Amino acid sequence: MSRGRQLNRGESWGLDVAAGTKGARIWARTRCSFDGAGCGRCKTGDCGGVLQCQAFGQPPNTLAEYALNQFNNLDFFDISLVDGFNVPMDFSPTSNGCTRGIKCTADINGQCPSQLRAEGGCNNPCTVFKTNQYYCNSGSCEPTDFSRVVFCP
């Protein structure tokens, strides 16, 4: 089930994950406006003009992902900039003894190279240029000027 909720700066949202869930993507949307029926738009991260997403958010958006009971029955989580960046994010587990989370709090929008700038965020080069040089699906790509920039230490 897809959910949407407004978070203001500094607020958090606890997610209870149902047993058997394998994984999910969570992304930030900004400058949203929805009517009573859940129809509307977001400046970044929009997912087809609806509050309850049925598709992935449109870049740029900061993305958190988790995969549960995967390789050797381990759980994995990350913050990814594969869809670009729009807001800082902190993503932390709160159960099963795991207390170490991850966060990306750098001013990426302020550091964004001019070629990747978008209203409200910073795009990934794949989104902008749509060439194999930036997709690296083969596993044999070379670093680029964009991949050499480290945004989230």
Rank of each mutant, 00 (worst) to 15 (best):
Q52T: 13
C104D: 07
V50I: 15
W27N: 00
S147D: 10
M1S: 12
A106R: 03
Q54H: 10
N61P: 02
A28G: 09
N72V: 09
E11S: 07
D35S: 06
S95Q: 11
C53R: 03
P93Y: 11
N8F: 06
F77H: 07
T131Q: 10
V149A: 06
R31F: 04
K103C: 08
C42T: 08
A67I: 07
S92T: 15
Q6W: 08
A19H: 07
N132V: 11
F151P: 00
L81E: 02
W13Q: 12
Q70M: 09
V149D: 01
A118R: 04
R31V: 05
N96Q: 14
R9I: 11
A67W: 06
T105K: 10
G23V: 05
C39K: 14
S95G: 12
G101F: 07
P125W: 01
C42W: 00
P59F: 01
A19E: 13
S80D: 05
V150N: 09
E142F: 08
K103W: 10
N96L: 15
G14N: 10
F91Q: 05
R100K: 13
G48I: 11
Q111I: 00
R5Y: 11
A24P: 01
D90F: 05
D46S: 11
G121Y: 00
G49I: 11
D107I: 03
R25A: 13
G97C: 10
D83T: 05
D145V: 13
Q52A: 14
L68V: 08
R41H: 15
G49R: 08
G14H: 06
R117I: 13
C136V: 06
